[in-house]
Amino acid sequence: MSTGYAYSAADLTDAAALVGFGCQPRLRPMAVPRYRDLLQRYRRDGQFRDAVDAMAEGLEMDLVEAHEVEGLVLHPRGGSWLSYRLQDHPKLGVKDRLVLGLAHVAIAARAYPCPADLEEETVKRVSLTEIDDFLRGLTEHLRRAAVDKEGLAVPHAELDAAWRIYSKLMPCRPTATGQLAKSSTQRVIKEALDWLVSQGMAQPAPELGSGHYRLAHRFRLQVRETASMAAFTALCDIRRSQLVEEE
């Protein structure tokens, strides 16, 4: 934080309010005048920006971007009290967490397979069937990648376990009420995408067809923050090889 500047109580209240708005990822500045005004102040006033950055730092969050449309994009640091992990979900067993985690990584890898994709502010569209087809196409690649040239297992236990479980599930099994059964892979993908919707990182796009979604700029930024994850890197490598084969 810059030195020699005395913050008033009003300054600190405004800084805390902006961080509070940023902690509501579905909130958009254009819909809330106070949020919009504070965001503009953050973008223009260096002293105020320092105060907001310091508050995010104290909450163990990285302030990724102050986007005019998406708002303040915050990323909780790993291990912080604000971070969300699949193992924290009380209703998910170990296998469920593995498959749901794989679905999340697959959504990101299919949308942003190349480093350049993570820098372009373009709207990506995905669907349940596209992600499901992508994951099923990955199965053989992952099976081959699970061992090295000498036939020894490659140490990536969670990814290996996840795709093996995934490959045994039915892609689409409707219930008597017409919903997707919990034991189907498209239901898992829907849960992943619906969670992104709840976090302001995606929007349903029914006008494009059933099971279609748009991925928000906020999701791209979050993926960019975690792009070094081994599982994401592995799936991106396979996705890029698929794109080369399709050309």
Rank of each mutant, 00 (worst) to 15 (best):
D117N: 14
D117C: 11
L118C: 06
E119Y: 05
E119H: 06
E121L: 06
E121K: 13
E121M: 09
E121R: 14
E121V: 07
T122I: 06
T122N: 08
T122D: 10
V123K: 06
V123T: 10
V123N: 03
K124E: 10
K124A: 08
K124F: 04
R125Y: 05
R125E: 06
R125V: 10
R125K: 05
R125C: 03
R125H: 06
R125P: 00
V126S: 01
V126D: 00
V126R: 01
V126W: 00
S127R: 00
S127H: 01
S127F: 01
S127G: 04
L128G: 01
L128F: 02
T129H: 12
T129N: 10
E130M: 02
E130N: 02
E130R: 02
I131H: 01
I131E: 01
D132E: 11
D132H: 03
D132A: 05
D133V: 03
D133P: 00
D133M: 04
D133G: 04
F134Q: 02
F134C: 03
L135Q: 06
L135R: 03
L135D: 01
L135P: 00
L135V: 05
L135W: 02
R136E: 04
R136M: 05
G137Y: 02
G137E: 03
G137Q: 03
G137L: 04
L138A: 02
L138Q: 07
L138R: 03
L138W: 04
T139R: 07
T139Y: 11
E140D: 09
H141C: 07
H141R: 09
H141D: 09
L142N: 02
R144N: 07
A146Y: 03
A146M: 07
V147A: 11
V147G: 07
D148L: 09
K149L: 12
K149W: 10
K149D: 13
E150R: 12
G151K: 13
L152V: 12
L152A: 12
L152S: 12
L152T: 10
L152I: 11
A153P: 09
A153G: 08
A153N: 08
V154K: 08
P155W: 08
H156R: 12
H156A: 10
A157C: 09
A157T: 13
E158F: 06
E158L: 10
E158H: 09
L159V: 01
L159N: 00
L159D: 00
D160N: 14
D160P: 04
D160T: 13
A161T: 07
A161N: 11
A162W: 00
A162E: 04
A162I: 06
W163V: 05
R164E: 15
I165H: 11
I165M: 12
I165L: 14
Y166L: 14
Y166S: 13
S167A: 15
L169Q: 14
L169W: 13
L169C: 13
M170E: 15
M170R: 15
